[in-house]
Amino acid sequence: MKSRMLTALNASGVLVGLLLLWQALIWVLHIPTFMLPSPIAVGQTVVSRFPSLVGSFLITAAAAAGGLLASIAVGVVVALIFAQSHWLRRMFLPYTILLQTVPIVAVAPLIIMWVGAGLFAVTLITFIICLAPIIANTTQGLISVDENMVNLFIMQNASAAQILWKLRLPHALPAIFTGVRIASGISVIGAITGELFAGSSSVGQGGLGYSITYALAQLQTDYLFALVFAATILGFLFFFIVMFLEYYFLHNWHESARKTETQ
């Protein structure tokens, strides 16, 4: 407990130091605000434009969460199908790698052409880039069940559904969480990247990515910085939610979710 507080203190000390350095650089080098706003100017912008900042934050959060949740639902189902047969995996698993390697910035214009710019397009882009890690990790988790554990269920004349719900899925849970953790990180990046291309303010308010392009065009560099901070907080938020869920579901039994004991 004491050491954890010390860690927090050290980390926040670094933050304060960096902010001071930043402010000092601006004073000493006379950097114009449109190139690099001072921390104080950014702080003032955060306060004065708080409602629109929160609005953008929520729009991006919705797209990222929607895409992530959809990719979990679809990814787990696809993995369940893949887990059924060695041949299916051989035929289709390589294409999930394709899904991961295709540059999303190249695909985004196509998606806009097909579904139109807006929240749905952004969610779809997020969904596409989140899918591969979910499928790959879940499949691995489902097929790595110990053979004798399956034998145990077979000898009890367990149904396929019982083997799935009572053995394969719980066994795969740590692997699913690994996939979700990776996907949650890229979901925020995906949503913001998507908004750079496909964001729309047709409802009067765009997401963080859209607002970033807008702020850049207007040379509102202080607002741009505020948006970047909001995006960072969003990424942290997703990370912590997934970490919490992982701990909640796995801490009783799985090593990855247990606190390491320090001597």
Binding site: D146, N148, M149, N151, L152, F153, Q156, N157, A158, Q162, K166, L167, P170, H171, L173, N252, W253, H254
Partner: peptide, 23 residues
């Protein structure tokens, strides 16, 4: 089996009850 093949997400009691549960 050579391995105890216990389900790590279940408590001892839940593991012992597994076969009865499947039945």
């Amino acid at each position: 089996f050579q391995d105890a093949t216990l389900l790590p997400w279940r408590t001892v009691a839940e593991n012992v009850g597994l076969r009865l549960e499947l039945e």
